[in-house]
């Protein structure tokens, strides 16, 4: 483990906190299961018998997903707040917080992922002929 020169440096509270954190990962149960992470570890050639590193990978991914989902939630709330009141009453039933591609693409754009979904499905020859009939 301690092959880098950095390990010999830096002692104090940070190291104690880090060692406590790594020890706490033994008891921590991430949402992403260990078996899934180990599958990706094996797929990518990451070889390490330490369970704590597996959990650390799971936690890092979980943090990323949680941040993206949190940003998408903020976008969702902001989008719902911009709807005028008279229309909002009609859409009261749909005021549930729904993760949509629109919010997700906005949230992922901050993380360097450019996501675009197709604007319409050309399921009939007349689709797209009249832009006024298009919803988006």
């Amino acid at each position: 483990m301690n092959q880098n020169p950095q390990s010999s440096e830096g002692r104090g509270d940070d190291d104690a906190a880090l060692s406590d954190f790594l020890a706490s990962l033994m008891d921590y149960t991430p949402t992403i299961p260990d078996e899934l992470v180990e599958h990706y570890l094996a797929k990518s050639g990451f070889q390490c018998p330490d369970v704590r590193l597996t959990r650390l990978v799971a936690v890092a991914t979980q943090k990323f997903v949680a941040e993206v989902a949190g940003d998408a939630l903020q976008h969702c709330k902001a989008r719902q707040a911009t709807i005028p009141k008279d229309k909002r009453d009609k859409q009261q039933k749909d005021k549930r917080l729904v993760l949509t591609m629109e919010d997700l693409s906005k949230a992922l754009r901050e993380y360097g992922v450019n996501l675009r979904h197709q604007e319409y499905f050309a399921d009939s020859p007349s689709t797209g002929m009249d832009p006024a009939t298009r919803e988006e």
Binding site: Y40, S44, A69, L97, L99, M101, V113
Partner: peptide
């Protein structure tokens, strides 16, 4: 994770997209 973040419902395509991005994130870290 989306539910713990506060979402009640997800569209299936959005969920699949977020899953694809997250699995690629995990794979890239590893």
């Amino acid at each position: 994770i989306c539910r713990s973040a506060g979402f009640k419902t997800t569209k299936s395509n959005a969920l699949e997209t977020l899953t694809a991005v997250s699995t690629r994130y995990l794979e890239t870290i590893v």
